[in-house]
């Protein structure tokens, strides 16, 4: 599903020097895989995830997503591809404080070409599927951390992406809440969704079927 060839991410430093965050990354991710990226802080895990999520565009190398050569796409085409194929879960949930649960779920749909009626149906289905119908009118600050991340996951998959990227999804949760989220990921993966997560936790990595270790920007 994903092929990365000689992927590099460099930050320029003062006096014409450079800092390599990612170096010569060559990876393949098959459809239906549940992969965990691990490594110490500063290894480049989140950077890799944001490149895969097409939030970061300042990289070199080749990135294929399905048939699409992402490295050759213009920004608008990349954005369209991302909106069609990828969902993203953040460590600190990143729900919008001023919007209700319902409205937060609606946001990704509002940036895709769905009619109002379709959006309403999809939000209702997702609320139902995640069992959070009763919380649809609550604001994020009225939810627990686990509930907020549940909404974050729901929001990430509401537009039916093929690939779910998760950046330390349980990093801000206590263990029982984290387990629930990981169980949810497992379920989604079992239903056919490809998942790539960044994690520090061996236990969470065990929910997946492959682990990639990064150190100082290299795959080890």
């Amino acid at each position: 599903m994903i092929t990365l060839k000689h992927l590099e991410r460099v930050y320029p430093l003062a006096q014409g020097k450079f800092f390599y965050v990612l170096r010569d990354i060559n990876l393949d991710f098959a459809e239906g895989e549940f992969v965990s990226i691990m490594g110490p802080s500063g290894a480049g895990k989140s950077t890799l995830l944001h490149i895969l999520g097409m939030h970061d565009h300042a990289w070199g190398g080749e990135y294929f997503l399905g048939e699409a050569a992402v490295h050759q796409l213009k920004p608008k085409a990349r954005a369209t591809l991302r909106n069609e194929q990828i969902g993203f879960v953040f460590q600190s949930y990143h729900l919008l404080d001023d919007l209700t649960v319902y409205e937060n779920l609606d946001i990704p749909l509002s940036y895709r070409r769905f009619s109002k009626a379709e959006r309403a149906g999809m939000v209702a289905d997702t609320l139902d599927r995640f069992n959070i119908v009763g919380k649809k009118d609550l604001y994020p600050r009225q939810l627990s951390g686990g509930q907020q991340q549940l909404v974050g996951v729901a929001r990430a998959i509401i537009a039916n992406p093929k690939l779910l990227l998760a950046d330390e999804p349980t990093g801000n949760l206590h263990s029982s809440q984290g387990e629930e989220i990981m169980a949810l990921f497992k379920k989604l993966n079992d239903e056919g969704m490809t998942i790539i997560q960044v994690t520090h936790s061996e236990k969470n990595a065990a929910y997946g079927n492959r682990v990639i270790q990064l150190r100082d920007g290299w795959v080890v």
């Binding site: 939030h55 991302r82 993203f88 990704p108 940036y111 929001r155």
Partner: peptide, 9 residues
Amino acid sequence: GIRMALGAQ
């Protein structure tokens, strides 16, 4: 930033 990450162009 969140909106952009969620698909806003």
